[in-house]
Computed example of a mutant assay.
Amino acid sequence: MINVSNDYKTNVYAPIREFVAKITFMLNGESTEYDDEWITYLDIVEEMDTLSDTLPSNQLTVTLDNTTGEFNFLNLANMQRIIASRPTIQVEMGLVISDTDTEWLPMGLFYLTDWKSDTGAMTVTLTANDNLLMLDNISFPATTVTNLYDLAVAIFQNAGITNYSIDSSLKKISCAGTTVAYNSRNLLQNIGIAAQCAVYQDRNGIMTIKPYETLEESNMYSTYPGLSGLYASSNTYSRVNNGDGMKYLSLDNMYEIPEITLEKSIYQLVVNIYTGTSYTSKTYINSATDGQNGISFTIDNPLITSTSLADKVASWYLNESNYNAVCKVDWRQNPCLECADVVLAEDGMGSEKQTRIYKQEFTYQGYLTGNTESRGGI
């Protein structure tokens, strides 16, 4: 969760509130700010996977007024090079505190992937994504690095990414390098699984690889979706507090009762353990399911090169996957909440659920709405 002022906390869930938005568009070395006078529609989808099953790319869609012809890209020099130069779009949303005070929050740094002049040429729609989409198109050559930290650094450097944060725990996990070229995004996914970490780009544009070892302390204890296995001895953690109300999703701020879905559990997990290009397989049974009516899943990751690492990955993966109650909330939204935050959500049945956010959408059209998807225990 992004730190916010007390004034923000007082106003964000008020019956009447006002949000504003702005983007900073950098093209050909020139930075220009566009505010509500230009923005007619803005939508941000941010998503992460704490299990690194996938590496989803955050996406921005923004529609701007073009009655002045400001965004007629056909008039620009080197038109064919615009997308290739990766123009950046920095997005901020602000909560109006008073006539003279607006509290701004970062909403992400995006790279232009599509520029469309809409029908009638009165508006233009820009689509942009984070670095993960670019990494999907960059090949990483064979390397002889010996630990996952150095491998992640090499991937970012090969892609020209200098703004990154990698947890030091990856230095303790050895690897045998890579013998062939890999897709950079897929290789980062393998690193995330082998290191039991999430891989994502944060709101400030920093590529991040980190585990979730601790959460906020409280006198109440409960079971919620957090790391286990390598980083903890059990599934019981200190219950997350409500963050002065910021981490509490109440029915008062929802447009309808949350949709809660119980997904199938993984009852059997197979992990391939590599030696060079060959591998052996080890099977793990999820004792929590007490049956076989679930999913059988295989982790085929060339960075898993020892039985001890396979055991840690399997323990982490099975424990984390047991939190399979998916909660979908359509509500007023709060930009200070981020993916991976653990929140308390009213379920419409008289109780609260602890659940970790994995996907959010923020839709702005002069006012803010959106939805939040999260996973938690029952």
Score class of each variant (00 low, 15 high):
residue 127 T to S: 10
residue 172 K to Q: 02
residue 237 Y to M: 11
residue 165 S to F: 10
residue 254 M to W: 01
residue 280 T to R: 09
residue 119 T to C: 08
residue 258 P to R: 12
residue 165 S to H: 12
residue 35 D to S: 08
residue 125 T to H: 04
residue 201 Q to S: 05
residue 48 M to R: 15
residue 191 I to F: 08
residue 348 G to V: 05
residue 267 Y to M: 04
residue 147 N to H: 01
residue 144 T to Y: 01
residue 322 N to H: 02
residue 71 F to Q: 09
residue 186 N to L: 14
residue 28 N to G: 00
residue 110 F to Q: 04
residue 158 N to Y: 00
residue 293 N to L: 12
residue 100 T to A: 14
residue 375 R to H: 11
residue 188 L to N: 10
residue 358 Y to I: 09
residue 245 G to Q: 03
residue 271 V to F: 05
residue 98 S to V: 01
residue 277 T to F: 11
residue 368 L to V: 00
residue 67 T to R: 14
residue 365 Q to R: 06
residue 245 G to T: 03
residue 36 D to A: 11
residue 217 E to W: 02
residue 295 I to G: 13
residue 266 I to Q: 06
residue 362 F to I: 00
residue 62 V to D: 06
residue 355 T to I: 09
residue 279 Y to I: 02
residue 156 F to C: 15
residue 72 N to C: 13
residue 186 N to K: 15
residue 25 F to Q: 01
residue 253 N to T: 15
residue 44 I to Y: 06
residue 135 L to I: 06
residue 64 L to I: 01
residue 188 L to H: 04
residue 15 P to T: 01
residue 369 T to I: 02
residue 367 Y to W: 01
residue 173 I to P: 01
residue 350 G to M: 11
residue 56 P to D: 03
residue 374 S to F: 00
residue 282 K to W: 04
residue 248 Y to R: 13
residue 204 N to A: 11
residue 66 N to K: 12
residue 219 N to V: 00
residue 13 Y to L: 11
residue 265 S to V: 08
residue 87 P to Y: 04
residue 36 D to C: 14
residue 154 A to G: 04
residue 156 F to P: 14
residue 67 T to G: 13
residue 20 V to D: 07
residue 288 A to M: 08
residue 38 W to N: 11
residue 15 P to R: 05
residue 354 Q to A: 12
residue 327 C to A: 14
residue 45 V to H: 14
residue 135 L to C: 15
residue 51 L to W: 07
residue 285 I to L: 09
residue 77 A to I: 02
residue 292 Q to S: 10
residue 190 N to S: 12
residue 156 F to G: 12
residue 122 M to V: 03
residue 354 Q to C: 11
residue 237 Y to N: 12
residue 144 T to S: 13
residue 255 Y to S: 07
residue 207 M to I: 04
residue 342 V to D: 02
residue 207 M to V: 05
residue 198 A to I: 00
residue 378 I to W: 11
residue 353 K to M: 15
residue 367 Y to M: 04
residue 217 E to M: 07
residue 180 V to K: 13
residue 320 E to P: 02
residue 368 L to N: 01
residue 377 G to I: 04
residue 226 G to I: 03
residue 139 S to N: 06
residue 96 V to C: 13
residue 296 S to L: 13
residue 55 L to Y: 02
residue 329 V to E: 10
residue 301 N to M: 08
residue 42 L to H: 11
residue 58 N to E: 10
residue 341 D to T: 03
residue 136 D to I: 03
residue 38 W to V: 06
residue 303 L to N: 09
residue 21 A to F: 06
residue 360 Q to H: 07
residue 58 N to M: 07
residue 327 C to V: 15
residue 176 A to I: 00
residue 208 T to M: 15
residue 233 S to Q: 14
residue 215 L to S: 15
residue 307 T to S: 10
residue 60 L to M: 09
residue 329 V to H: 05
residue 244 D to N: 07
residue 373 E to N: 07
residue 377 G to S: 07
residue 56 P to C: 05
residue 342 V to A: 06
residue 138 I to S: 11
residue 196 Q to Y: 02
residue 171 K to A: 01
residue 340 A to V: 03
residue 154 A to L: 03
residue 67 T to K: 15
residue 51 L to M: 11
residue 199 V to A: 09
residue 95 L to M: 08
residue 83 I to Q: 08
residue 106 P to S: 06
residue 316 W to C: 01
residue 215 L to P: 06
residue 98 S to M: 03
residue 15 P to C: 06
residue 109 L to W: 05
residue 185 R to L: 13
residue 219 N to C: 00
